[in-house]
């Protein structure tokens, strides 16, 4: 609206400039109060051994949003995912991560899970001898203890689990086996999604969930993930390719390159990457 006002002198211009800024500041504060900031990453710098991988990441995610993070190999995508989950080999040298206003850097991996963060691993590790059912029951109850709510007894747990088995259409036989032992790539990803359904996290980080999956498995996985999505949880999809984003529609797409987010946009940005590659942004 100020475009149509003719400024008589620079003082008037300055006056309106200040007014505009205050207006938008107020609007932003109101905006913040209305929306729930789930994740706020500010100027995050991360080293592994002596190499700097993340060189100042800034990212804000609200409840209910889906953000895609795309980038070429070595850009720092998986590092970001691991740092959010709390992997201890990474050293945070600068910046902050806040999850619903809590300082995430202070929290251990198990505490982060208690707060509602879930990382679906790209290469889930095998733990022979640990049954999936026993493992997920322990996890659920430990998180409930963290949240100071009652744990599930055997009967409640089984009915809860059966609900989720139906919801995401996973083979019950898979669950009687040892954690990821001898699982195919697709089975491992399915197991990650099963855990997601059981733990009901607030922030789901999908670390290259599409890698190693054929088209049908990919559609299946996306279908299940979409079923789990609601207005209270958010998803970060880390991927190279645009494929998965055909089935899970992101609200925002960020391009990460050489440890920094260099461009953000909507889903069309992903389509552009698919057509042109990453070189045009560099």
């Amino acid at each position: 609206m100020y475009k149509f006002i003719k400024f008589n002198n620079y003082i008037e211009k300055l006056f309106f400039f200040i007014l505009k800024n205050e207006y938008f500041k107020l609007k932003k504060i109101k905006y913040n109060k209305i929306k729930n900031f789930m994740l706020k990453i500010k100027n995050l710098e991360v080293f592994i051994d002596k190499k700097k991988i993340l060189k100042g990441i800034n990212l804000e995610i609200l409840s209910g949003e889906i953000h895609a993070i795309m980038g070429p190999n070595g850009s720092g995508k998986s590092t970001l995912a691991s740092v959010l989950a709390g992997k201890e080999i990474y050293k945070i040298t600068n910046g902050s991560i806040n999850f619903f206003k809590k300082d995430l850097i202070e929290l251990s991996p198990e505490e982060r899970a208690g707060e509602g963060i879930f990382l679906a691993f790209q290469y889930p590790v095998e733990i022979p001898g640990v049954s999936i059912v026993n493992f997920i029951k322990t996890a659920i109850n430990q998180i409930r203890i963290y949240k100071e709510i009652d744990t599930l007894d055997a009967v409640s747990f089984i009915s809860y689990m059966n609900e989720k088995i139906k919801l995401i259409n996973i083979d019950k036989n898979l669950l009687n086996r040892s954690l990821n032992e001898g699982f195919s790539g697709g089975e491992k990803k399915k197991n990650e999604i099963f855990q997601m359904a059981m733990l009901d996290p607030k922030l789901i980080i999908l670390d290259e969930t599409d890698s190693g999956l054929d088209v049908d498995s990919l559609k299946e996985a996306a279908k299940s993930i979409n079923k789990l999505k609601n207005k209270n949880n958010s998803i970060i999809i880390i991927t190279h390719y645009q494929r998965l984003l055909n089935y899970i529609t992101p609200d925002f797409v960020h391009i990460i390159y050489n440890g920094k987010i260099i461009k953000s946009g909507d889903k069309n940005l992903a389509i552009k990457i698919e057509k042109k590659g990453y070189n045009w942004i560099k």
Binding site: G86, K87, P109, E110, R112, A113, V125, I127, T138, Q142
Partner: peptide, 22 residues
């Protein structure tokens, strides 16, 4: 293995116990 279990909410000592028992 330890990180995997902890990332699911299982605390460090319980996770080590689970791995040893397995």
């Amino acid at each position: 293995q330890l990180f995997y279990l902890r990332s699911r909410g299982i605390d460090r000592s319980k996770a080590i116990s689970m791995i040893i028992k397995a």
